[in-house]
Design a protein around this nucleic acid. Structure first.
Lengths: 347, 347
DNA sequence: CTGAAAGCGCTTACAG
DNA sequence: CTGAAAGCGCTTACAG
């Protein structure tokens, strides 16, 4: 690729003048500027990003922490979709993205060291072990940071309104006449905690009490764990009429187990998920779930991060909660007594 | 982050000596080297990648072209999995990855210009319009290039053995007693072409002829298109007993349409897919399909690309075909007459 | 309005 | 065995 020096020779002016014209400085003659811009675009000149970064302390490169632990990462549809929209927004604002890793070739570097090595302008922590000290080091560094699905005091957080989602979902189940509702929740985290709080609150608001055995800790996106827990729930003397899975993928495990027990969905056992991935639509019956708006989560994360980078004093460090949507599928049985011309359901 | 200058002061030697010690040059005193290495790791020193890249003409950064057109990109499970394994392998060899885009902020750059702007050491064309001149410019450039799922003469190609996959799949269907087999194939490409060739060959080998209306062009991963084509197939005076979808995701559209017509799967119509994504396992009945080994495709692409970068004279520009696997689900009916103690199937 | 010069953080001939 | 110097391709005070 042509260097600025070659370009300056073609233009018959100095390197400084070319640089200033290209970067929109005002103190350049109109004619000179036009000439430079024209020739630059003719030969397809672009400044070398490395040289530019070295001088300007700005790489236009964002680090994305996208760990594959806990069944997360690119192989997880929810996170892959978030990354897609994050990348689209970032690109539109002129930023590229790199994944943050810690075993780069032979060198073991911490996440933070990788960030410094590459000089990222900012970092998005999309999926990670939020209690890992390496992650905390990044959050506590001077780097602009945005976090998805977790709340740190020191960084901007983007997340779905999980409390509202769980409230809507639970209320919907209750409205369908269920009171024996089991909840397989994910591993402990602030998101999980809030969903649990909201679940219990909705029960309380409706004067429903459930046995403690109905609430069991599972693992997000682990169908096998969901299967064994479901078996336990089905083996209870008084089994639940509805099971809330920690996510849509786990819901598939719940479904399989229910069927393996010779029970029908939703006639014998109702099932709901959380996330609203495409799998939910593919299942038969369609899964009732809460759809998280992955397009907005990713775009909002990128937007907040870039604003924080470019305009730190005009960007507040706060939490952004995004609306969720109840997706009514066919996996929850209506247990209410028939009335009016509502569809009837046999017991 | 500490610079090499600061480190050199701490070590009491010159910048040159530090650099050489860090880079494994032999002409450094043992004691000096050890001392430098120790202090460097104490303060967590890493060279600035931009400064290093500027000097060495090597960024340890790979460009990945990962277009979202044609329902591809990160939101496509098949490609997201390939990217995951590509990234894992590249990281292990010391490379980071960036997505290649062409609208970076206000600047419109071509794919090739983006590669030069970022100085990628090499490029992986994972999903793209292979006939786009911008893509061809990259392939024809001096950059090391590896291509997934398409064959160019000028670059290394990594792809599944589609011909073998299609042969296995078609033979399996035939072995189950089907002869009225329809094939909804994807948009024209070398992959599509080879699958078609293999499909016809398998029919011929078994002395089966099908009406031309049974072979229709669809669109990869477009369930809606698959639905309307399926409707046409079902409306034929002599409808097929088995439909081959272009991919698993499209197979879902085929299934939905078949059921909407009041037909049972596989009793009335058998259905198979291609790819082996997790959706295939989630469907009821499980989808019979060909599993492409996304883990190996991604890793092999990264391996070939990095070999080509680091050791061009020892790396041949050739095509790598990876084995595929027939996944027997429950979506193909066995039409053979009952014999022995095989399971019976009513007509 | 234009350009010479310094410097960003490195690596690597070259001299000693 | 060690270090001074040049240079990678840029940007930006500063001088004119």
């Amino acid at each position: 690729m042509a260097t600025i020096k070659e370009l300056s020779i073609k233009c018959g002016v100095s390197v400084s003048t070319v640089s200033k014209a290209l970067n929109g400085y005002k103190d350049i003659g109109d004619e000179t500027r036009r000439n430079i811009l024209r020739i630059a675009s003719e030969i397809g000149y672009f400044p070398d990003s490395n040289a530019r970064a070295l001088k300007m302390k700005k790489t236009y490169n964002l680090g994305v922490l996208f760990s594959t632990m806990f069944n997360h990462g690119l192989r997880n549809e929810y996170f892959a979709h978030i990354l897609a929209s994050f990348n689209e927004y970032a690109t539109n604002r002129g930023y590229d993205i790199n994944f943050i890793e810690h075993n780069i070739g032979n060198r073991k570097m911490s996440f933070l060291e990788h960030c410094r090595y590459r000089n990222f302008d900012g970092v998005c922590i999309a999926c990670a072990d939020f209690f890992d000290s390496e992650v905390l080091d990044v959050v506590n560094s001077k780097l602009p940071v945005v976090v998805i699905d977790h709340v740190f005091h020191e960084a901007i957080s983007i997340l779905s309104d999980n409390m509202d989602g769980m409230r809507q979902l639970t209320q919907y189940i209750i409205d369908q006449g269920h009171s024996r509702i089991a909840f397989i929740h994910g591993t402990n985290s602030s998101v999980t905690h809030n969903r649990l709080v909201s679940f219990y609150q909705a029960l309380k608001d409706n004067n429903i009490t459930i046995p403690p055995e109905y609430v069991i800790e599972g693992v997000y996106r682990d169908a096998e764990v969901a299967e064994s827990i479901t078996q336990k729930l089905l083996d209870l003397p008084m089994r639940p009429t509805c099971i809330i899975a920690p996510d849509d993928y786990s819901a598939l495990g719940v479904m399989n187990t229910v069927r393996r027990n010779g029970l029908k969905i939703p006639d014998d056992v109702s099932i709901v998920g959380f996330d609203g991935i495409s799998l939910a639509q593919a299942l038969e019956p369609k899964l009732t779930t809460i759809r998280q708006d992955t397009d907005r989560i990713g775009a909002e994360a990128a937007k907040q991060l870039i604003n924080l980078i470019e305009n730190p004093m005009a960007t507040t460090i706060s939490n952004v909660y995004l609306k969720v949507q109840l997706m009514r599928g066919g996996s929850v049985r209506n247990m209410n007594p028939v009335m009016g011309d509502e569809e009837s359901q046999k017991d």
